[in-house]
Design a protein around this nucleic acid. Structure first.
Length: 283
DNA sequence: ATGTGTTCCTGTCCGC
DNA sequence: TGCGGACAGGAACACA
């Protein structure tokens, strides 16, 4: 599931348990996920203090007192579970070890962070904090959609001359960071743009509308995640997964939610990914 | 250079 | 209940 808003929600959920705390013990249960874990990862994590938790695109970056940074990517099915903490009235006991619990961090203060990833498309790596943004997974990623670099001029220039569908262009992490299949569908619906339209053929004025809509959709989702963090009472302490109300994603054959549009949400496949859209109000 | 299809894995869901 | 197949929110890679 995790796209930018979910990753941001996970980061915020981890903050109170991790920031400023020492990793008392790191347990690594297998040698790899998408690619091998770095050498001696458990040793390099154990005893380190987490100075800060950042997010870049869909990556969580934990800066450590050792001068190294831990990079975490959740892939498609990665989950972060938190236990050994009390939130409000509810105490989250440590769960029984589960299948696909690949990495466990026992924190100073008693919290435990469990990284579980059935499909193993997730990743972890470590690098020097200085120059972390030149890491091979990060260096080619486009600007953060909530930052100032991402604006009308930038997006116009990136779309110019591109013959691919606007849907595919927005999924391209080199164009803009953090958007995935769900939020691209949602954004294009809200912007009234046909996902099949060539990126290079989107008019300047529509690009100008698209930029704030991208921000709005992401910020709303982050806000929804924030309220789920405040309110969550799930027994398993899983972070970042919350009830969304998507307007088009996974709503094939549902009536289009656009005011005054009597269309129906359809599903097509673009570059092997499902696209949900309304052919009536998205032109 | 750019665009598309394939691939890594496991789990879930749906129809028979 | 079991079985087979389709499908899943990511992203690197190979290839046209």
């Amino acid at each position: 599931m995790p796209e930018l808003p979910e990753v941001e929600t996970v980061r915020r959920g981890l903050l109170p348990a991790m920031e400023g705390r020492v990793i008392n013990r790191a347990t690594v249960n297998r040698p790899d996920l998408r690619f091998p874990f770095p050498e001696r990862m458990a040793d390099r994590l154990t005893g380190a203090r987490v100075l800060g938790l950042r997010r870049r695109s869909k990556y969580i970056l934990a800066d450590l007192s050792t001068g190294e940074t831990l990079l975490i990517h959740l892939g498609m099915s990665g989950r972060m579970l938190i236990s050994g903490v009390t939130l409000g009235e509810f105490h989250y006991d440590h769960p029984a070890p589960a299948k696909h619990d690949h990495v466990v961090l026992d924190m100073e203060g008693g919290a435990r962070i469990t990284f579980n990833d059935a499909r193993r498309f997730g990743a972890m790596d470590m690098m020097e904090t200085a120059g972390a943004d030149t890491h091979w997974l990060l260096r080619d990623i486009g600007p953060e959609p909530l930052g100032n670099v991402f604006n009308e001029d930038y997006l116009t220039q990136r779309f110019r001359g591109r013959n691919t569908a606007v849907k595919s262009a927005l999924l391209d992490q080199k164009v803009v960071a953090g958007l995935g299949n769900i939020y691209v569908c949602e954004v294009l619906h809200r912007a009234g743009i046909d996902p099949r339209r060539k990126a290079g053929a989107i008019t300047q004025s529509r690009v100008a509308r698209l930029v704030p809509i991208i921000r709005e959709v992401l910020l709303e989702a982050i806000e929804a995640g924030g309220s789920s963090l405040r309110d969550y009472r799930q027994a398993d302490g899983e972070l970042g997964y919350f009830q969304h109300n998507f307007r088009v994603y996974d709503r094939e054959n549902a009536p289009c939610p656009t005011e005054g549009c009597n269309g129906t949400i359809g599903r097509i496949v673009q570059s092997g990914r499902s696209t949900f859209f309304c052919a009536r109000c998205q032109r």
